[in-house]
């Protein structure tokens, strides 16, 4: 494997956004790119990352390999990279280590690290293609604000989507709160628009702790997409350039 990223910031942000949810992960490398899929210990959230080969230049992966990496270790090493450094990942066949180099674009500084790999026996879970009843695309900063504000009051949030719009509601010890958004097109800045596509009304309840955690990915994309269907895990997607993405699935709280 040899994969060169123009900006180390991308990988730094991805790892930062997932390291509190999952600890030891396989980075599955093949000629289409680098993928990661991992579930948190309590089986409430699933992280699915895809960094397409087009997001790297160059990208070369001659044989499929799984790089078992501890994210705490990776975070320690990535801290040594500046956001605008050029980052190159390298691994040999049947590797013991993954090699990371950080090149400063302005100086002749080159730093190089090896991280020991782990043997991670991870079961691969199939994610079914789902036709969601409601898809909401909104500014990622707006979604962060809603989850942060409501998490001050309650542990969970009800997300209700109807043709009127989407409503986030919470009930807590000190009182309750809600935020409603309507479909809205910002003609000056499309990134600030709220798009709602609905085939049937949806109402689901989720843990805010996890949603707040997902919002650590907000720096990766101006926009976030929420996909909901009744009694199905919520999909929170941050799209990256070249069709790469960081997706989070969150189990709803159901029944009584």
């Amino acid at each position: 494997l040899e994969a060169r990223l123009e900006q180390a910031a991308m990988l730094k942000r991805v790892v930062d956004a997932i390291k509190d949810l999952v600890q030891d992960c396989n980075f599955d490398c093949n000629d289409s790119g680098i993928a990661l899929q991992a579930m948190d210990n309590s089986h409430v959230a699933l992280v699915s990352m895809m960094l397409k080969s087009e997001s790297f230049s160059p990208f070369r992966c001659d044989r499929n390999i799984a790089l078992g990496i501890n994210l705490t270790s990776l975070t320690k090493v990535l801290r040594a990279a500046q956001g605008d450094d050029i980052l190159t990942l390298k691994a040999e066949d049947a590797p013991d280590v993954v090699n990371l180099t950080f090149e400063s674009p302005e100086s002749d500084r080159l730093s190089e690290y090896d991280i020991k790999l782990m043997d991670i026996d991870q079961e691969h879970l199939g994610i079914p293609d789902t036709e969601y009843a409601a898809t909401i695309t909104l500014p990622s900063s707006e979604f962060s604000r809603i989850t942060r504000d409501l998490s001050a009051l309650s542990e969970s949030v009800a997300i209700e989507c109807t043709k009127e719009g989407v409503k986030f509601t919470c009930t807590g010890d000190i009182g309750n709160g809600s935020v409603s958004l309507r479909q809205h097109t910002n003609v000056e800045n499309d990134a600030k628009s709220v798009d709602i596509s609905l085939t049937e009304p949806v109402a689901l309840t989720f843990s805010l702790k996890y949603l707040v955690n997902f919002c650590k990915a907000a720096g990766l994309s101006d926009r976030v997409r929420l996909c909901l269907s009744n009694e199905v895990p919520l999909l929170v997607e941050y799209g990256l350039s070249n069709n790469s993405y960081l997706r989070f699935y969150l189990a709803p709280k159901i029944g009584d």
């Binding site: 199939g126 189990a251 709280k253 029944g255």
Partner: peptide
């Protein structure tokens, strides 16, 4: 109280 869906059971092993 509502119960938390288990994602492991949802995402069937492929």
């Amino acid at each position: 109280a509502p119960f938390q869906m288990d994602l492991y059971n949802y995402f069937i092993k492929s």
